[in-house]
Amino acid sequence: MLLEVNNLIKRYGDFLALDHITFAVKEGEIFGLLGPNGAGKTTTISIISSLTQYDGGEVKFLGKEIKRHEMEVKQELGIVPQEIAIFEDLTAYENLDYFGRLYGLRGNLLKERITEALAFTGLTDRRKDRPKGFSGGMKRRLNIACAILHHPKLIIMDEPTVGIDPQSRNHILQSIKELNKMGSTIIYTSHYMEEVEEICTRVAIVDHGRVIAQGTKEELTALVSTEEKLVIELSSVNYTVVEQIKSISSIRECIIKGNSLEVVGKKGEHNVSRVINLLTEAGIEILSLNVEKPSLEAVFLTLTGRSLRD
């Protein structure tokens, strides 16, 4: 394991911010910390980054307790804070030069890494400009560049897409995938379900300072999903067939929406093949068929009784 967080406790006065949080991050994965605002994601990240002291439990990086090996661990971490953490009065190049030096990079190696980070984030052309004139997305990209130029073993990204346009968000998400392909392990926190679903290999759902569930997306959805929904677009709708579909014991409901059918039934009962057979036998052409799986949103809703953005 690259990172192990065991029974982590953090109190702010009487408020228990982290309540025995436990999870582990494997080398090479994108690990998502998913939860609403105030769930404890940023506190967890702050502790891993040695920004905040903790009151109980342990955090180990490559088997080493971070409290005792703070500098050693910091050297291997790349932090992308939730806030844009760049110097507005230094150029993009100078920002990278400054932070690169703090991580011990010097000379040609530093220059190479700066060039690489600028190219990776698409900021090469703007390297001599100060971020004052940058768009929000460009600042976010520079924020990421500052965190990756020393080739950290673990990159921690705390909601890196907050407040930016969809195009920049896509660029950042693609960059994260690319970093992962290049071998980086990433912890990604977000309250945007779709982002976590898109990029994370494993997810821990955090709420009220506790991990309420963790695993792959499939493992998590399996925890709550007993039904599946088929959305079928047809050339025409035949009411007789609809009644036949409804009569299947594992089908709970079948709703007609224009030329489409929405069929909800129990999982694992071969509903798809049964419905397709009935439609084919009736000579109805199937234009498209989509099996909607339960989302992490549904998982969160089931586990906590509330929506992620409540």
């Binding site: 980054s49 040695s50 920004l51 500098m71 050693e72 910091k74 050297q75 971490l77 932090i79 804070p81 806030e83 844009i84 953490a85 760049i86 110097f87 507005e88 932070f99 703090l102 991580y103 011990g104 500052c146 965190a147």
Partner: peptide, 14 residues
């Protein structure tokens, strides 16, 4: 103000 203290405090420097 510009949160660079976060980045500096997470860097391997006392």
């Amino acid at each position: 103000g510009n949160h660079t203290n976060l980045r500096m405090n997470t860097a391997p420097i006392q």
